[in-house]
């Protein structure tokens, strides 16, 4: 738990305090000093440029720090939405059972049938590239694992005595769902939230790598996936350009997965989480 939290705190720190941690602007110098900056292209890592410089002479360390903003921003936003949607659908199916459960379960099965990145690519291509597209695509492919988990958990909770007691004193069904069943799903929700951010971060990077994410310079900064995509073209001359964003990406995914693991052990959530 300690390792994963420290990794994540460091990455969040980078994202928030990026301007204080590096003297270089994220998109490099504009017009007047551009020429000077270009003469710094493809510099190998050094004390001045810990991760080297890219094809436009920009400091890769600076860009990697800013890159944490998109990764974490998109990851968190997409996962929150996916947990809300998947949690609602799953708990409604698990709590009401019967026909409602039958219909929602079929819907869940259909979405489970898609390999996640493939469906995200399909949706992303149809909607056109951009940050919002990435978030929509991630939510569309990731609500379903929350739904599967929460359906099972809430079906079990619905059989407990306190639900029957609530029913006995005449509370309406929807009230029982929101007041008693959903709040009791908190442990699996927290666990799946953590695991899901890891995969959301991975899908975001993959989509950006394929050119479906935000372009290189959005308001938030570059995306790691996009940085690796541009570095690919210069792999022979400047292999280090992959290292910085690649390392941070792997660390972020690792951190959320580890946190998920320890939370699962802590809350003793027994469920197959993807």
């Amino acid at each position: 738990m300690k390792t994963s939290i420290s990794i994540l705190i460091i990455i969040f720190g980078f994202a928030i305090f990026a301007p204080l941690l590096t003297p270089y602007p994220v998109s490099g110098d504009t017009s007047p000093k551009m020429g000077e900056q270009l003469s710094n292209r493809h510099l190998a890592p050094s004390i001045k440029h810990p991760f080297g410089t890219d094809e436009l002479g920009r400091d890769i360390f600076a860009r990697t720090l800013y890159g944490a903003r998109i990764s974490l921003g998109v990851g968190l936003a997409a996962r929150i939405l996916a947990v809300i949607i998947g949690g609602l659908i799953g708990s409604i199916a698990g709590f009401y059972g019967g026909k409602t459960d039958f219909i929602l379960s079929r819907l869940i099965e259909i979405f489970l049938a898609f390999p996640s990145l493939i469906l995200a690519i399909g949706i992303g291509t149809a909607l056109g590239s951009g940050l919002l597209t990435v978030i929509i695509a991630i939510v569309a492919v990731s609500w379903v694992d929350v739904a599967v988990l929460i359906r099972a958990v809430s079906a079990e909770i619905s059989k407990r005595d306190f639900v029957m007691a609530a029913r006995a004193i005449g509370e309406p069904e929807s009230m029982i769902l929101f007041k008693h069943v959903i709040p009791h799903c908190y442990a699996p929700l927290i666990v799946t939230f953590s695991f899901g951010i890891a995969s959301a971060v991975m899908i975001e990077a993959s989509l950006s790598f394929l050119g479906l994410g935000s372009s290189g310079n959005s308001v938030l900064g570059p995306s790691w996936g996009w940085m690796i995509y541009t570095a690919e073209a210069y792999l022979g001359v400047a292999p280090w350009a992959v290292f910085g964003p690649g390392l941070f990406l792997a660390m972020t995914v690792f951190g959320w997965n580890m946190l998920g693991d320890s939370l699962r052990d802590k809350f003793d959530v027994k469920a197959e989480l993807r």
Binding site: M202, A205, S206, F209, G225, I228, Y229, A231, E232, L235, P239, V242, G246, L249, A250, M251, V253, F254, N257
Partner: peptide, 11 residues
């Protein structure tokens, strides 16, 4: 398990 496919690919 944690390394993204495109990073292992490029390495």
């Amino acid at each position: 398990v944690s390394a993204p496919v495109f990073v292992t690919a490029l390495i």
